[in-house]
Amino acid sequence: MESALAEIEFLVLSSNRVAILEALAEEPRDRSALAEATDASQPTIGRILRDLEERRWITRTERGYEATATGRLVAEGLTDLLAIVETEQRLRPVMEWLPVDVMAFDLRRLRDATITVPSRTRPSAPVRRVNGMIREAEDVRVCSHAFNEQSLEAVRERALDGPGTFEGVFSRTAIDALAEDDSLRTRLRELASSDGAAIRIHAEEIPIAITIADDRVHLMLRDDDGVLQAAIDTDDPEVLSWARSVHEAHWSAAAPLDAEGL
């Protein structure tokens, strides 16, 4: 294990070594092409090529240099490791609020996700982000333990004024909270009665807050006290597939909302 760690250390202590090995794993290149790919000097490139040749990670050919089978193996593993670490660094500030126990997908799928957090100047930034997505989408599906006034209005405007459709399944507590306010109850009844919308109530508390706006998934992240801490959205296909399956499962187990009975 120590020898393997030493080789990893050798490689990662130089960004140029990493860049050159990854470049040669893609295709054969000569020194000029490697210089363009890395901005390294010719003496530096020469030293790196000798080091990589000693480890039999690359070999010289008529076309220049190319990675060997083991060199490609190392390059692929390093690329995966870098992706994992980069993802972890991005998720670290919000990791404690991620509902990982119900997220049935590889966290690496969130590598390119957009993370939105509240700030002193924009405390409602996560809510504004999802409502902007809702207003622009044709098809909106929600599966959540919460339904606030801003989201209700965004969905209501879309369902009443546009050609879009809305399917929302909520915990009973989310609907009851809206129904306690006369104005919100009226708007909720209008939404539920519109042709483009359907709302269902789940008997049990839904442990997650998902919005699917067309092909983009938005997750609201709250702490144990229910305070909104951040939001993540992505168009990754695996995350989208997972979100749709979660919505479908809760939708199938829920009962239609009686709009007149609110």
Rank of each mutant, 00 (worst) to 15 (best):
172 R>D: 10
181 D>E: 08
189 R>L: 02
165 T>A: 12
180 E>C: 04
223 D>K: 01
210 I>W: 05
205 E>P: 05
187 R>K: 11
202 H>S: 13
206 I>N: 11
153 E>A: 12
241 S>F: 10
216 R>S: 14
161 D>P: 05
142 V>T: 13
190 E>C: 05
190 E>K: 12
167 E>Y: 11
210 I>A: 05
223 D>E: 01
156 R>L: 11
191 L>E: 02
233 D>N: 08
140 V>S: 05
233 D>S: 14
207 P>G: 10
200 R>G: 04
157 E>L: 12
189 R>T: 15
191 L>M: 14
203 A>N: 14
160 L>E: 14
230 A>N: 06
181 D>F: 03
232 I>Q: 09
246 V>H: 04
233 D>A: 12
239 V>A: 06
194 S>Y: 14
207 P>C: 03
187 R>A: 13
178 L>T: 05
231 A>M: 03
224 D>F: 10
175 I>L: 11
193 S>L: 15
174 A>L: 06
143 C>E: 05
205 E>C: 05
244 R>C: 06
213 A>Y: 07
213 A>K: 04
189 R>F: 10
214 D>S: 04
226 G>P: 06
247 H>E: 03
245 S>T: 12
156 R>Q: 10
192 A>C: 08
243 A>W: 00
156 R>N: 00
223 D>Y: 02
198 A>Q: 15
170 F>R: 00
205 E>G: 09
239 V>L: 07
172 R>L: 15
143 C>A: 13
